[in-house]
Amino acid sequence: MSSSLVLSIVIYVYGFAFIFYTSSAIFSKKEITKVGTILSYIALSGNILGFALRWIESYDKGYGHIPLSNLYESLVFFALVIAILYLYLEYRHKKYIISIICSLFCLICMLYASFQTADAIRPLLPALKSNWLTIHVLTCFLGYSGFAVAFALSVLLIMKNALPEKIVKFTEAEIDDLTHQMVSFGFIFLTLGIITGAVWANSAWGSYWTWDPKENWSLITWFVYLAFLHLRFMKGWHGRRLAIVSIIGFLAVMFTYFGVNYLPGLHSYGN
């Protein structure tokens, strides 16, 4: 079985998970939610399997690198981590509203990945051949995924009043706290991502920081979440106001991820 076959099936499974979660919220039926959860676990397993297969395939082709070297591969990994995070939240809190939003994210990621034309496994440029690459990209995407879930929570918090109580189930304080946890998770991994990136750049190009647009945007993102943390810790910000900061942060993440490719620089990931 090839990774691309597995991953294209996974798109559908995420899609159905999303549909089941959504209908369970609309009809408030426990059984339908169960189906959504089971589908999510299947999708996640497929996602992990696809990732692993792709890794093996790259060895078969003689290149042998972790599948995190282009936009397609990173999107697959992005979906994978988001799925782990939302299934963890679901398991821990037994509430499903986050799963609705996040399964939609996974669906979008996988769909968007499938539109990528450059999904062939290709050899790495000499500069990219380093263990730091693996750690750097891995940590960055763990961070981004944390922020994605935090974004989902923030959107939920802002829309909460417009949604029926029995769908949301979370109290505002709970959402607020979860957002904070996810931001913390994301922040620590983004920090690790930036640091490993700097160490890698220093070992490959001789300077740990070159003010390249991608580096800058990750720093900008870091600053936004830094402001988030300080506003929360010191100013006691919470709820709607803080949710807006988290949303701005996620926009910065998205720009770091996609937008930067339109600016000139070293990390020409998408092209």
């Binding site: 003010w211 800058n216 720093l219 600053f223």
Partner: peptide, 17 residues
Amino acid sequence: SVVTILFLAITSILGTV
């Protein structure tokens, strides 16, 4: 600190443009 951090964030955007 928040003002300075946000100032750095915003001006850094200029630097990338």
